[in-house]
Design a protein around this nucleic acid. Structure first.
Lengths: 195, 195
DNA sequence: GTCTATAGAAAGATAGAC
DNA sequence: GTCTATCTTTCTATAGAC
């Protein structure tokens, strides 16, 4: 059962990140030890420090990569010109993305307080950037008279919170499929800012 | 500066709970040590074990008391008979309660995973009981034809998530007062289930 | 009821062999 | 690149004096 020594940095690095992501999401950053992460990967605790300077850097890397990927994925798609359609598209995208990146999304909302001030600012700015995509949809729609919202920022936060809530209770194989949930949420969100 | 010995259980007990609440909310349950709690209160770590069997019991007590108080407070008020008014009343109550019990609410959504399965079930059942108050408002309103909601449970979760979101970004002295925010959220929530 | 002292386990991180 | 071994710190919890 002894592991062979050798060069595995291209494999071990990602595996460490994957293990850390999964464990942090399940038990919380502070509750997970470096030894646990190492055990999940199948290496010794000391070996982790070949891939990260310390525990917090591991968390920061996960969060920054998540936010970058989220924004790039959203921006890489064609958006419907109609405000209502663009809003529905956002809802569907957000719910689908959350399903496919559940742990990352969960972490990005739960573990910000474990970051140093500088790292907190960094992640917070990225998140704000994503939220602003929704804010722009609402602003444009309101300008065209298609939406009503006394305060765009409030409506943005309300919708984001509503959508993120799905993450906390949705389970595969439940009463409703994610497509059904998505459709119902599209309608609710649309009504929230209905003119 | 030496503290006098003596009987202080009526004072020290609540102070320990208050310190634990504040520290757990700020740094997370797993990240807070018994020594930190003791230092905040001004006693030695060992003294905490006169008031709690262990660290998790401290958390469970805080969460159960919070949920009990929340439900009793809500049930202790007269409710408007009109469904729309009852819904608006719920929104205002929830937002106001969250402002006044910020740490408790935050804890009750963040730290459930640090509980043993039995304790998790206990707190989760209490939370579900509170959510069902909102669910009943929506059901009644729909029965009377005043609300539209394809799925009551989904609408309930969406509204609760939306309202809890306020907790994550609201700061006293910000751009909007909590009364202004509350009024806007009342309208958004009402529209979400508008007939 | 609170203290000091400490047991016993586990944490983050590093050093040096291979 | 990974290992064993270890340093140093910190943790939860308990024992026994006062």
């Amino acid at each position: 059962m002894a592991r062979r020594s050798g060069s595995h940095s291209e494999i071990t690095g990602p595996r460490i990140r994957a293990a850390a992501l999964s464990l942090f999401a399940r038990h919380g950053f502070a509750a997970v030890s470096m030894r646990q992460i190492a055990a999940e990967v199948g290496v010794q605790a000391g070996a982790l420090y070949l891939y990260t300077t310390d525990k917090e850097a591991l968390l920061v890397d996960l969060l920054r990569d998540h936010m970058d990927t989220l924004i790039r994925t959203y921006d890489g798609r064609a958006l419907p010109p109609d405000p209502h359609e663009r809003l529905r598209d956002f809802v569907r995208f957000h719910i689908d993305y959350n399903r496919d990146h559940r742990d990352e999304v969960f972490l990005s909302y739960m573990e910000l307080r474990n970051l140093s001030p500088e790292n907190f600012q960094l992640i917070e700015a990225l998140r704000r950037g994503y939220e602003d995509r929704l804010g722009r949809i609402l602003t444009d729609g309101r300008t065209e008279g298609r939406f009503t919202a006394p305060d765009i920022r409030l409506a943005t936060m309300a919708i984001i919170a509503m959508l993120n809530g799905v993450n906390t209770w949705f389970r595969d194989g439940g009463r409703l499929s994610l497509d059904e949930i998505s459709a119902i949420y599209c309608d609710m969100v649309e009504k929230t800012v209905a003119a």
